[in-house]
Nucleic acid binder design. Structure first.
Lengths: 341, 341
DNA sequence: AAGAAATTTCAAAGCGCTTTGACAGCCAAC
DNA sequence: GTTGGCTGTCAAAGCGCTTTGAAATTTCTT
């Protein structure tokens, strides 16, 4: 069933039917009703490819998924996607996911853009001095970045959470509890959020004249195993840290196991604050010692970015170009006063 | 730059240029060279939308992502996607992801199929008597199902793991260790894999004249929290089970916490076997008590399904229609002989 | 050397939709 | 009773590509 057949069935021209369907005003309401009714009965669906050819709009958002043999998938990606999806489904948008080797992202992005398959781009896993920004700016296609790129002029549309502020606040809380020996369990070093979180910790410590030793920092994929390894390392340091900042609840999982295995008590011997992306997978409140966290929903960010992207494509009003979300600091049982030496 | 301009530039017809580009034999080699050269110089890229409208081929695989406000994302989805992506990137294919409310999947699938945006479909999260099968069969579009649909004639292309066999084997191992009180911590009841795993357990038990009590079964989303709750429930039963079968390492995570909190020792007081999808997130060998698991890589399944789907679209040789992968049973420390009463 | 066959190229017809510009039909205004 | 402005509808022209069927050119037969 296509437009032509449908219009013949109704005894109308294709023009009228098309207009009725797309909400143009110059169509009699009675006619529109008839058309809508016929669509329901016949199950007619416009062919997207044709629509796209005619309008130049694709009704879809493109994103590059970093993947390669041997490249580990990241839980956070799925959760973010769920957020994007939640919003997209409301607007009958979909995603075109172009899988690409992480080393080939710039080219992949370009291919995606000129393929004509998408009318907006979304980019995540931002790095310091991210080369994709220049590429995005050169394209004449709307885009929104999740995160920012440390070291680049912030003149691009983004949605980010205040990573620095989050870790600054968390560090301050621990300082107030009397801690002086800190460690930071971070995500991969080149990623923007990792850089900013580190800066947050460092600047809070600096206010008290403290510094974060290189040995008290780990940069790794955010998995359970890496959390375990990093914490084991910290616990073996001569000056064992008593306060741990942790970039993900997933890392915290492994870290806590290391704490337990060492016979130490979380919230007493060791205080830990983790960043919580609100993954359904893992709730910090149901840990055996409920976790103090900095919280910001990754999924909500996905929803918002989809809103902005779709809104821009549909020309639905202006959106703020740059949003920086504050995180919440939620105190639970994994933090306590520094133990007496 | 479009075909017309390019052909004018070359003094050829659009036909000839198009054929030269698409490798048709009826083009003089010298002419083809000239065309290819011009493409390089001008950076011409065929418009995908037009190509698609003309050919009906889209170079992409469609899949429906279950999502809705309040619908929790599932870690396993991301990992599977990584596998699909790993293969797709080799063939310059991409995905079109249509987010859809889980209640609306059949319709979403149909929309995706007739949108002309994809030329093959992939379906997961199979249920018993899954209504999507009839829909898929009625479409004339290649598809592959991940999993199977219990209760439906198995006459559709699928890739599944031997869930029943896996849990049968796991149960047998525990029986051999002398266990007689079992519990099963399963995924959502309506899902096919959950049904088969349950059957595997039941039939192994039946061979020893044992039955699985209703109270010793839980069906829930596979998250840490649900694992904790289910295990807490099991531990409070008057006849406390000593052998636990668990549908995911994520569930096991919470379950083990409950065991620890109850002051019991894993592998001694309680034996546990979990199914391991080989998530990078969570390695069973690095649990504090390394986990005995039934193992099958979800990501590998993704790769294989992408292979079949893309191969079919490209008409690259026949593929087996139905594949059933065996799982491995890997014994680690979370299983041990039944404790003396 | 003329006709048949094979090779190379082309004009034009779609693919299914949107959008432009025109045209009836109708009512109010001068 | 002509002019002008609205409404609702339509025919036709794209959008950029592939593909059909025919024409032009070259090569092979006899």
């Amino acid at each position: 069933m296509n437009l032509k057949q449908l219009s013949e069935l109704l005894g109308l021209s294709q023009t009228t039917v098309s207009r009725a369907l797309n909400g143009y005003p110059e169509v009699n309401e009675a006619t529109r009703e008839r058309v809508l009714q016929a669509v329901k009965e016949t199950g007619y669906r416009p062919n997207k490819a044709a629509q796209r050819l005619a309008t130049g709009k694709a009704g879809s958002i493109g994103l590059v998924m970093p993947t390669a043999p041997g490249h580990q998938s990241d839980v956070h990606f799925g959760e973010f996607l769920a957020g994007l999806g939640e919003e997209a489904v409301r607007h009958d948008f979909h995603f075109v996911i172009m899988p690409a080797d992480p080393d080939d992202e710039v080219a992949a992005l370009r291919r995606l853009a000129i393929s004509g398959n998408v009318d907006a781009l979304f980019v995540a896993y931002m790095r310091g001095h991210d080369p994709r920004l220049a590429m995005l700016k050169s394209l004449s296609m709307p885009y929104v970045v999740h995160g920012r790129s440390f070291g680049s002029e912030p003149d691009y549309p983004y949605l980010d959470i205040d990573n620095e502020g989050a870790f600054y606040d968390a560090t301050r809380l621990l300082l107030q509890l009397g801690h002086t020996r800190f460690a930071l369990m971070n995500g991969p070093m080149h990623l923007d959020f990792a850089i900013r979180r580190k800066n947050g910790v460092i600047s809070a410590l600096a206010e008290r004249g403290l510094v974060l030793d290189e040995g008290c920092m780990s940069h790794a994929l955010m998995t359970d195993e890496q959390g375990l390894l990093a914490m084991e390392h910290f616990l073996q340091l001569p000056e064992r840290p008593t306060a741990i900042l942790c970039s993900s609840t997933v890392l915290a999982l492994g870290a806590i196991r290391a704490v337990n295995q060492a016979g130490l008590r979380l919230g007493e011997d060791i205080s830990l604050i983790a960043h919580d992306d609100v993954l359904p997978l893992l709730k910090p409140e149901s840990f055996s010692v409920p976790l103090t966290t900095t919280r910001s929903s990754l999924r909500a960010a996905g929803v918002r970015i989809a809103q902005r992207l779709i809104g821009t494509v549909k020309q639905a009003g202006p959106f703020p170009d740059q949003e920086l979300w504050k995180t919440e600091l939620i105190v639970r049982a994994s933090t306590g006063p520094v133990p007496r030496a």
